[in-house]
Design a binder for these strands. Structure first.
Lengths: 117, 117
DNA sequence: GCTGATGCTTACCAAAAGGTAAGTACGAAC
DNA sequence: GTTCGTACTTACCTTTTGGTAAGCATCAGC
């Protein structure tokens, strides 16, 4: 896929979910928001359990969707830095209430099923 | 699966995405928010393209996750009404900024690729 | 006793998403 | 010339998700 995704969206939420769904994307957004520019390897170490293939795949899609910037430095060994674009930062702000809701939900769950979470 | 989902969430966003991801869930939330209580058939007609299997599946998961109520009336032909719980309403509120962001994104896309969306 | 309406359930299949493991390119250090 | 570190790439496989189509249970109306 060489262009940005754009299904026949029914509503705005639809269009946002399309961009944000993907096992690691919200975590990548968070990581970049927290640390500013990060290298590929730093991201990999920051996301426990992600494989290189998955990480790159999600980064590429997010780049195509205009959420992040990729800057490659022509050095050896290579260095590549990822950072949020303006749209990415705005998305992160828009996700904040959802994150807060999720935190409350997680608290509810762990209080009721202490061993499961 | 008889209990609520609860993976080992990394952050609140994670926990929220788990509950909201699923092709029709955000649309169901929106539909219930818009119309209040709705019958199974009304929801099906309100979501263009959804199959009965998918609709029920998503409704069951959302019920288990405490987002919606299911009320069955013992009539013939049967009548079942779905409505948002308090948590469901709170989730909808938390999704509002994300929906707004998505609407902006959709507008950007349609302005730049007029035939694709 | 057949049809219709409603809300499911089931079996089976296709597509998409995700995971594993190995390989590549580059030059610097040894 | 072999090893190291970085950032990928590729082939192959498994798991998850979504879709299709048919069937079921109930009773009212005809």
């Amino acid at each position: 896929m060489t262009t940005t995704r754009s299904g026949p969206y029914i509503c705005g939420l639809d269009a946002a979910m399309d961009v944000v769904s993907g096992k690691w994307k919200s975590l990548i957004l968070w990581e970049l928001h927290d640390h500013g520019a990060r290298r590929f390897g730093e991201l990999r170490r920051g996301l426990p359990g992600v494989s290189e293939k998955m990480l790159i795949q999600q980064l590429r899609e997010m780049e195509q969707d205009g959420l992040i910037n990729r800057e490659a430095f022509r050095e050896v060994p290579p260095r590549v830095e990822y950072s949020l674009t303006e749209h990415g930062r705005a998305l992160n702000e828009a996700l904040r209430p959802l994150g807060a809701w999720g935190t409350q939900r997680r608290d509810r769950l762990t209080r009721r099923q202490p061993g499961t979470a």
